[in-house]
Design a protein around this nucleic acid. Structure first.
Lengths: 257, 257
DNA sequence: GGCCTGTTTTGATCAAGATCAAGATTGCAT
DNA sequence: ATGCAATCTTGATCTTGATCAAAACAGGCC
């Protein structure tokens, strides 16, 4: 990608990415000059858990996996960032270390903004700062959401919930969801082992709620699936919140790294 | 509490609470006039999951339990806010519903700030806004932290980790931790049932790592406990993150409500 | 003290989901 | 095509931690 092309694309692109649309042409120029592009291959690690948070990352294309991993090789995927999403704002704001690992799930292009520049933009542009705050707040809500489902729903419910969430708010009737990521990654996001995830998909499919073909999940009747969710079928009283899953999902990924 | 007293106390108090120290005397006055005090009894519910987020709450004294709960009566305590802490900023910022329930753990006093006033202060005072952003970012990091331990640590480790976190960063030798909250609440925060939590405390105590007396936990050797944590004793490979616990911890609380 | 209520502990049992170990698929790349 | 490597599925078994039930403890209050 030539510098020329980069700039043109970038300018156009940033217009559409939340906070960056609030930058003045001047500031956008500053950004283009101070930040850099990064094109990494699948499996590349952007940063490790505990590393000093020196940059904010904006995903231009591709997907980045954000997650924890323990010595024992266990891993938990917290979130996957796709085009237009970003991460690192909170850490940079706080001046803390990254609280997770970031790894490319596929070849991707990112915009990498040095912390000082980011701080500068935050200080210079209140509208930008407000939108960044919004983004951080959104991330917080996302995590709360995740915690809630991980805590109170059974595996089957989480899978159903995940599928329903992929749909448009008003989707009904029959639809097909295409999983954009390896099942192992999705499993980990749902706090399941990939084996368990596989079994749960089969279970839902046996119940006629879905039909799975490779990474295509057909939902013959969205309403039915939603009903399954609300009518808590397949549960347990769960008196204090289910634990965060012990899936090995990450293993594979880790190995791939 | 007379109005006079309230105002004097409040002014003094807010000075010391993060973001509010950045307010100008003028704005602080605005706050005192626009916000209201709330003194509730134990068990009172401030708001329910899914309610429109209309206020930001600042805890003056007492403790407030923030958590989810399902129809089936299960509950997961996400966090407990004590004096100087606050909640609702993110929801108000986003204009979204509260993503959890807030319930008094004991009689407490809070400052309740209406959303419009909060927005106003955010818009008028950049320093305040920046500190609020910081607070939201801190909450985000707290949640990530919670997710991480819930995901990769075994029950015993989470308990040990919890105890160690109560200590000063540099604590060593022998110390005593006093649990400020009912064990059932702590258990839920750790994604355990209160029964399991009880057993784990006993287990650690049998191993000589701690001595439990009522709500006083004596740690004869902090280093030893830390070592127990790092040397992952008592695990499982945990290939994808432990699930969010299924403690019934909440039950009791729920019943208390 | 004796009583009532709420919290903690213990015990026995159960279940969701993890782990280990093969296979079966799929997707590329040659 | 053919083969290699990664992904996904299945099966058998085991563990952690949940559930149910009941007893042991605190505390506060007459």
């Amino acid at each position: 990608m030539s510098t020329m092309t980069s700039r043109i694309n970038l300018n156009e692109y940033l217009q559409r990415i939340g906070p960056y649309s609030a930058l003045t042409p001047d500031q956008r120029q500053q950004l283009i000059e101070g930040a850099r592009f990064l094109e990494e291959d699948k499996g590349q690690v952007l940063f490790e858990h505990g590393e000093r948070a020196s940059h904010v990352y904006v995903v231009i294309c591709g997907h980045v996996k954000l997650g924890f991993s323990s010595q024992q090789g266990a891993e938990k995927v917290v979130s996957v960032s796709g085009p237009g999403e970003s991460f690192g704002e909170a850490c940079v704001t706080l001046g803390r270390d990254y609280p997770f690992r970031a790894e490319m799930l596929e070849a991707a292009t990112l915009l990498v903004i040095p912390a000082p520049l980011f701080h500068q933009l935050m200080a210079d542009n209140a509208a930008f700062a407000a939108l960044v705050t919004r983004r951080i707040a959104e991330n917080l809500h996302y995590l709360l959401q995740e915690m809630e489902s991980a805590s109170l729903m059974s595996g089957a419910e989480r899978v159903a919930d995940f599928l329903v969430r992929q749909l448009d708010r008003d989707a009904a009737g029959a639809v097909t969801v295409d999983l954009a990521l390896p099942k192992s990654v999705i499993a980990s996001r749902l706090s399941l082992t990939q084996e368990h995830f596989s079994r749960l998909l089969r279970q839902l499919s046996d119940q006629g709620l879905i039909e799975v073909d490779r990474r295509h999940v057909h939902i013959p009747n969205v309403g039915q699936l939603r009903r399954f969710l609300n009518s808590g079928a397949g549960h347990c009283v769960n008196r204090g919140g289910r634990s965060f899953g012990r899936g090995r999902t990450g293993w594979g990924q880790l190995a791939a790294a």
